[in-house]
Design a protein around this nucleic acid. Structure first.
Lengths: 145, 145
DNA sequence: TATTGTTATACTCTATAACTATA
DNA sequence: TATAGTTATAGAGTATAACAATA
């Protein structure tokens, strides 16, 4: 659901973060649809492509429960984008690796997502966009307690 | 669930927005708990306090469905923070107004939330925090198509 | 005993469809 | 006919608890 930001809420950090994310997802959905995945699945592919991980390890990186990871891998496997392989050293683990189709999908979908992000940040201009991303990176990390 | 931001995802706008919001909610929860409300309910109180609105009008401002609004008002009414009043001019509408307890809760909870936001943005410093909020305001608004 | 993957289950948040009362 | 509020229902997305296989 799209809607205007009421002036009353325009200074609310939580409200703004939530709606900025929704706006981005609204733009990312159609951009990724041609590749048959959504933003969350693209993130999973990204994590798995760098180094083959067990489901548990991938879940930790993504910050989700291991039961959530099962469904995520099920979906990607069903699309032929990843494969599960029993780990020989520890047969409790599934190593999840991208298929050739998965690698291809990741490459194309990443490009599409980058384009969406650039267009999303475009209203800020290059310099401000850079500062914005840096600030966001600072804030997304667990706060220094 | 808290976790570190993996380097791989540290440049991902969507990932960062989502996790920044989660970090903020994690901090806001305990801060608002003493007042018996959560961040979303505080937002509802904020919108209703400015001008008495019908449920539909409030739902529009908040960007939620009117069926979602029913549950939201139910909860706040159950806590004695708002009251429903049939609108005399159009008896289909419920005007929702803050009770004295609601006004009091809004005042105290707003202060607590402001403190959380200030602390959340503190790592950026005053100037960067201001720029960050301004950028976020720009991005949260529906993009100029 | 502890860990990994899995399943069943439940909880939160939200929306769609259908009902009612009003207009 | 159209709108406001309500209810029932369903769909995401996520987590907890319990189980089997493995360590």
């Amino acid at each position: 659901m799209t809607h205007e930001v009421p002036d009353l809420l325009a200074g609310r950090l939580g409200y703004l973060l939530k709606h900025a994310q929704q706006q981005l997802m609204l733009a990312a959905g159609p951009a990724l649809a041609p590749f048959g995945i959504d933003g969350r699945e693209l993130t999973v592919l990204t994590v798995l492509a760098a180094v083959p991980l067990s489901q548990q390890e991938a879940a930790d990186q993504l910050g989700v429960d291991r039961t959530t990871m099962v469904a995520l891998v099920d979906a990607l496997e069903g699309k032929g984008l990843v494969g599960r392989h029993r780990c020989p050293e520890d047969r409790r683990k599934n190593i999840v690796e991208l298929t050739a189709a998965g690698e291809n999908c990741l490459r194309l979908a990443s490009r599409a997502r980058d384009k969406v992000e650039r267009e999303f940040l475009a209203p800020l201009g290059d310099e401000l966009a850079g500062h914005f991303l840096a600030a966001l990176r600072t804030l997304a990390v667990s706060p220094p307690r």
